[in-house]
């Protein structure tokens, strides 16, 4: 029971990170119908940026945790958003309205570029870091086992909820959100109605990258490690989460992320650690094959 509870907490924590990344996938897929294959790597870049900022602040003698966190958060979000914007500008915008495969291949190319860019700039070693927010609440204890809710997990849950609320507000209530939803329905029509499609799409990438940056910082705080390859598998799992939650739905993405996180943690805890990624990929396949419109989506009728 204690073990179960601990796994539950860990699963939701992992899932929150997936969920934050999944929002980036779901927004981009919703608006231009492409899998931003490089999104997982944008997340990875953000973990590296956070790490560099962290070390920089420490070596400058800034050690007050709240200040450090705030500075890193702002810095990482800004820089990662700029990465997202640049990737869209360089690799996707020239291919808008082109053949469907071209942006996907371009995105795969971008993913390779980002991975190797980081590998060359920061080295191939795994960067491990001591936890910035140590400790937690021990709220359940038996002789040999205690259940911990770490402070970093609390930070993660709070951030996820706040960010989700803010972004849901942006998408549903602001002019930008309206423009995004219009582009989702019909890009051509939206542009005829005077919506600046390029700008809307750019901002979508910027928003997605910002969320990836939040997820990246949280990942670094929570797991205390990253490397140049950290984005690939996480990215694919986050994409599964986006599909599972129903493409285009922000709460769905977080819900999907938590589902994937829970499945992964429980599979690793109760069945096999070695095969946890096999389980994740199998779920991915099953979801895409049998639930292509997700939990919150509606079934589609084939148009003939």
């Amino acid at each position: 029971m204690e073990y179960f509870l601990q796994q539950l907490i860990n699963g939701v924590a992992l899932g929150s990170i997936y969920g934050l990344i999944a929002i980036g996938y779901t927004m981009v897929y919703g608006i231009i119908g492409m899998i931003n294959f490089a999104h997982g790597d944008i997340f990875m870049v953000s973990t590296m940026i956070s790490l560099v900022l962290l070390i920089a602040l420490f070596s400058l003698g800034v050690t007050a945790v709240p200040i450090v966190l705030l500075v890193i958060l702002l810095g990482a979000v800004f820089l990662t958003a700029l990465y997202g914007w640049t990737v869209e500008r360089m690799a996707y915008r020239p291919l808008r309205g082109s053949f469907r495969l071209a942006p996907l291949i371009s995105a795969i190319g971008m993913s390779i570029v980002l991975q190797n860019y980081i590998q060359n700039a920061q080295g191939a070693d795994k960067k491990a870091f001591t936890q910035l927010i140590p400790g937690g609440i021990e709220f359940f204890k038996e002789a040999d086992f205690s259940v911990w809710l770490q402070y970093s997990q609390i930070a993660l849950f709070t951030t996820t909820i706040v960010v989700l609320a803010v972004f849901t507000f942006i998408v549903t209530k602001t002019p930008l959100g309206r423009a995004q939803r219009a582009c989702e329905q019909d890009i051509k029509m939206a542009s005829l109605l005077g919506i600046d499609v390029d700008k809307t799409i750019s901002l979508t990438f910027v928003m997605g990258a910002s969320l990836a940056a939040v997820a990246g910082l949280m990942h670094l705080l929570y797991y205390g490690s990253t490397d140049f390859y950290a984005g690939f598998v996480v990215g694919i799992k986050a994409f599964t989460a986006a599909v599972l939650g129903g493409i285009g739905s922000l709460p769905g993405a977080v819900l999907g992320g938590i589902t994937i996180g829970l499945i992964e943690v429980f599979f690793a805890g109760y069945v096999s650690v070695d095969y946890k990624d096999v389980a994740a990929f199998s779920i991915l396949s099953i979801v895409l094959i049998f639930l292509p419109t997700g939990i919150l989506g509606r079934p589609e009728v084939e148009k003939v």
Binding site: M90, A102, I105, S106, G109, M110, I112, V113, N116
Partner: peptide, 12 residues
């Protein structure tokens, strides 16, 4: 790195 860049360039 160059491989990835070439992929993007050829696609564009």
């Amino acid at each position: 790195l160059i491989f990835g860049i070439v992929m993007v360039i050829i696609m564009v």
